[in-house]
């Protein structure tokens, strides 16, 4: 499949498109936690690294099939997501943000001292199983499942928690279960993205999954539009392409990036496509025609 695509697309662009796919998967996971349910998580890179390391170690040491490896990585991240979901019962907003930052930092330090993970040297020689077709197939499946989830009763309950937790509770929503569910599914997707990333890069290193990586994923969600699937996809596309396109102005690109975030928040506090859902789009553009 990839050989076929490679005849028409330059390998460099193919690579960027694979990264876009991986970022979409991870950003959709965070969107579920932060965008939809409103639980500010600033440690998504922690889930990503859990998925990446678990999948890579399984591939390297046990010679497991690719799908098993990335699923194991995602499951590992999901189980940690479940554990992190529990404090959300007691903490809100900024304390939760601190706990997630702390969690991601602890994971990073753990991998820096983790012998089977190569410590600070990182893991190298991971087989490159991830290819264009696999990534985008997973992206499509994730988008469809995600959309189904958001339009279901569960999805509406999650939105309700974001808007007003107490009101949601008094409407009979089991907020505890819902919040833990959002965390578990969200971190599963983070871990899935991490596993794909590891199997594309040949090499992973604990420093790749630092605080700035978490912020990068959070920016995708917020820039595109909190709680919106098309928005999150758009955010992931823009923020993956931007650094590549801005390579000419290399040194100034972070300056531009920071400034853009501020300006965007002032004019579009809910992101480019804040709360736009696929069916809203259909309704809006359909009427005009």
């Amino acid at each position: 499949m990839d050989a076929f695509i490679a005849q028409y697309i330059d390998a460099y662009y193919l690579r960027i498109m694979i990264f876009i796919g991986i970022n979409i998967i991870m950003a959709l996971g965070l969107n579920l936690i932060t965008g939809v349910t409103g639980q500010l998580s600033m440690g998504h890179a922690g889930f990503m690294s859990l998925g990446a390391y678990t999948a890579a170690i399984i591939s390297l040491h046990y010679d497991a099939p690719f799908f098993l490896a990335i699923l194991a990585g995602a499951a590992m991240a999901a189980s940690f997501g479940f554990i992190i979901g529990i404090p959300t019962l007691r903490l809100d907003g900024d304390d939760l943000a601190m706990v997630t930052i702390g969690f991601a930092e602890i994971i990073r330090v753990f991998f820096l001292n983790f012998e089977p993970g190569g410590k600070a040297v990182g893991l190298s020689g991971i087989p490159q199983y991830t290819d264009f077709a696999t990534v985008w197939l997973i992206v499509i499946v994730v988008i469809i499942l995600n959309a189904k989830l958001l339009y279901s009763r569960v999805g509406r309950s999650l939105f309700a928690i974001r808007e007003n937790e107490i009101a949601a509770q008094s409407c009979g929503i089991n907020t505890t279960r819902m919040k833990i569910l959002a965390f578990t599914v969200g971190s599963f997707l983070g871990g899935l993205g991490g596993g794909l990333y590891a199997h594309y890069m040949y090499y992973i290193n604990p420093q790749d999954f630092g605080f700035m990586k978490s912020i990068e994923i959070l920016n995708m969600v917020v820039l595109g539009g909190m709680g919106s699937i098309p928005g999150t996809v758009l955010g992931a596309v823009i923020l993956t392409l931007a650094p590549e396109m801005l390579r000419i102005v290399a040194e100034y690109r972070l300056l531009f990036y920071g400034g853009m975030l501020v300006i965007l928040m002032i004019f579009r506090p809910n992101g480019l496509l804040g709360d736009v859902r696929i069916y809203d789009l259909k309704k809006r553009w359909g009427k005009k025609r």
Binding site: D10, Y12, R15, G122, M201, Y202, Y203, N205, E244
Partner: peptide
């Protein structure tokens, strides 16, 4: 000095 950055640049050098 970042590993993801060097992977990107190496691919760009070779393919582009």
């Amino acid at each position: 000095g970042e590993s993801s950055e060097i992977a990107n640049i190496t691919t760009k050098y070779i393919t582009k």
